[in-house]
Simulated scan of single mutants.
Amino acid sequence: MSKIGYIRVSTVDQNTDRQEIALSELGIQKIFSEKISGKSANRPQLKSMMEYIRDGDILYIESISRLARSTRDLLSIVQQLKDKKVDLVSLEENIDTATPQGRFVLTLFGALSELERESTLKRQREGIAAEHLKGKKFGRPMVERPKDRYKVIKL
């Protein structure tokens, strides 16, 4: 079992001192640190950390916002950690997925994310239906094709 840390700030102008201090007293064996926006899907240190961690490891973060920028992103990362049998500890939110309470909180996040997604899709369908009633057409326009494009040849 190893204690792994992940630290992220959004820009190169920011420093990681606050997060480093928060993790320093925990006996972390390896820290992955990067200065890149959380919106970026291309986070090299996050990818390296996900490849590095093993069954039984514990990932420590200072705050959930440092690991993920959206609930969907967070739940995806947490699922990958779960698949690898790695627990997650977030110091700021006091979440530890090794505990029933920590798993419960993440389950709530998952339910809220699903509700948000379903609500968005419902509003989208309602908006499309309203536009159809006004006569708006969606999709690519129809293209006229010559009728003799495909000829049947009798043998």
Rank of each mutant, 00 (worst) to 15 (best):
L23V: 00
V78A: 12
K151Q: 12
E93D: 01
E62W: 15
L106Q: 01
S33I: 14
G127Y: 00
L75D: 03
R123F: 04
S10L: 09
E92C: 12
V9L: 02
I7H: 02
L81R: 03
T99I: 03
L46Q: 12
K137Y: 06
R8D: 04
T71I: 11
F138D: 10
E144Q: 12
K151E: 04
S70Y: 11
G5E: 07
F32K: 00
D83T: 10
G38T: 00
S63M: 06
Y60N: 01
L59F: 05
F32W: 03
S24G: 14
D73E: 14
A68W: 09
R54V: 06
I61L: 08
I31T: 11
L155G: 12
F32I: 01
A41S: 13
K147C: 09
A98F: 03
S63P: 01
Q101P: 00
N15R: 07
D148A: 06
I21W: 07
R125N: 14
E62A: 15
P141E: 12
L133Q: 15
I21T: 14
K151I: 09
D73L: 02
D13P: 01
P146S: 11
D73M: 02
S65N: 12
Q80V: 10
D73T: 04
G5T: 05
A129R: 13
A98D: 12
V86N: 07
S113A: 15
M1A: 10
V152L: 15
Q101V: 14
S40A: 11
D17A: 13
E118Y: 07
T71E: 05
G102D: 00
T11I: 04
R145G: 08
E126S: 10
R69A: 03
M49V: 13
Q19M: 08
T99H: 02
I28G: 04
T99Q: 02
K151G: 01
L91K: 08
Q45I: 08
D55P: 06
R125D: 09
Q124R: 13
G56T: 10
K137N: 09
D17Q: 15
R117A: 05
L67E: 07
R123H: 04
R18D: 08
I21G: 05
N94R: 12
A111F: 12
R69S: 09
K35Q: 14
K3D: 05
I58T: 15
I61E: 05
V152D: 11
I21K: 15
Q29N: 13
R66H: 10
I128H: 06
S113H: 13
R145F: 10
A22P: 06
L81K: 03
K82V: 04
G135I: 02
